[in-house]
Simulated assay, not measured.
Amino acid sequence: MSTLPRLLADRSALFLDFDGTLAELAHRPDAVRVPPALVDLLHKLHQRLDGALALVTGRALDDLGPMLATPWPWAAAFEHGAVRLSLQGGVAGTSRPAGLSRAIAAAEQLVSRHDGLLLERKQTSMALHYRLAPSLAVLCEDTLARAIADEPGLQLMRGKAVVEVKAAAVNKGVAIDAFMREAPFAGRVPVFAGDDVTDEAGFDVVQRLGGIGIKVGDGPTRARHRCAHPEALRAWLADSLLASSTTP
């Protein structure tokens, strides 16, 4: 695996995860801090790429929107691709999966009995965070796995100090593939940066399309490039923008 690739090309289609990729992780989702100048950097990259920039995140729009920009100015896929927002303002989304209520009820019982757990309810999925109670990781995973054992349409995902339940047919790779069939992304070289196991499907798709997958941080990955932390990725993006502005 190599380090970061050469600077971003003008004909790139840029896809970016948020938590752990553009911003450092925190002890709980609402404690994440947006780095200074990040919103301005994204706006400038969006302009340079003629709109071919999308955030691809597990967060919900109502959660991430106020943190970055209102109204939302970029294409994006939220909830791991279950809700996809185009540049034209159209929203394509999956319905709430059958059986999700059972998983949420099981998570609510855990939260009521154990300190340090946080339940995040979304439009089409849910996430149970245990960063403040790491000893409960196995209990959280086993409880949710049992709750959805009879629901083939649901999938359990294990992330960084979080376990999530979402529709099995939804992932970031599917969302990126859909964007690549639309303007202004079609015909460009896809670049996707992410930090967690939930981003591996995205790496698979962009690399199959001849593009670039960038893993942020440690851990096994199928991405062919890596950087150490979100600050390094932000610096690479800023350097790419600077290089393009100084090119005659």
Rank of each mutant, 00 (worst) to 15 (best):
residue 113 R to W: 13
residue 100 L to I: 15
residue 127 A to L: 13
residue 103 A to W: 10
residue 82 A to V: 02
residue 69 A to S: 11
residue 132 L to D: 10
residue 171 N to M: 06
residue 121 R to M: 12
residue 86 S to P: 05
residue 145 A to H: 04
residue 80 H to K: 11
residue 85 L to T: 06
residue 132 L to R: 08
residue 153 G to W: 00
residue 77 A to W: 08
residue 115 D to S: 13
residue 81 G to W: 03
residue 148 I to D: 00
residue 143 T to K: 11
residue 165 V to R: 01
residue 122 K to S: 11
residue 161 A to T: 12
residue 104 I to P: 12
residue 101 S to R: 15
residue 101 S to D: 15
residue 162 V to W: 07
residue 169 A to Q: 08
residue 97 P to T: 14
residue 110 L to S: 03
residue 82 A to L: 02
residue 116 G to T: 05
residue 87 L to M: 09
residue 116 G to W: 00
residue 73 P to A: 03
residue 163 V to Q: 03
residue 121 R to Q: 09
residue 165 V to M: 12
residue 146 R to C: 04
residue 157 M to S: 12
residue 97 P to Y: 12
residue 100 L to C: 07
residue 171 N to Y: 03
residue 80 H to W: 05
residue 70 T to C: 01
residue 137 A to L: 15
residue 72 W to T: 01
residue 173 G to K: 00
residue 81 G to D: 02
residue 93 G to E: 15
residue 167 A to D: 15
residue 121 R to C: 13
residue 103 A to Q: 04
residue 149 A to G: 04
residue 169 A to P: 01
residue 140 C to L: 10
residue 102 R to F: 14
residue 120 E to C: 10
residue 136 L to Y: 03
residue 117 L to P: 00
residue 79 E to W: 01
residue 128 L to M: 06
residue 159 G to W: 09
residue 138 V to P: 00
residue 103 A to G: 00
residue 86 S to L: 11
residue 105 A to T: 11
residue 101 S to P: 14
residue 96 R to N: 11
residue 150 D to R: 15
residue 132 L to I: 14
residue 165 V to T: 06
residue 125 S to C: 08
residue 164 E to H: 05
residue 122 K to F: 05
residue 133 A to N: 05
residue 173 G to Q: 01
residue 74 W to M: 01
residue 95 S to T: 14
residue 167 A to G: 15
residue 90 G to N: 15
residue 118 L to M: 10
residue 74 W to L: 14
residue 124 T to G: 07
residue 146 R to Q: 13
residue 122 K to E: 07
residue 142 D to R: 15
residue 110 L to N: 06
residue 137 A to C: 06
residue 141 E to Q: 15
residue 130 Y to T: 02
residue 108 E to D: 09
residue 156 L to E: 11
residue 148 I to H: 03
residue 92 A to P: 03
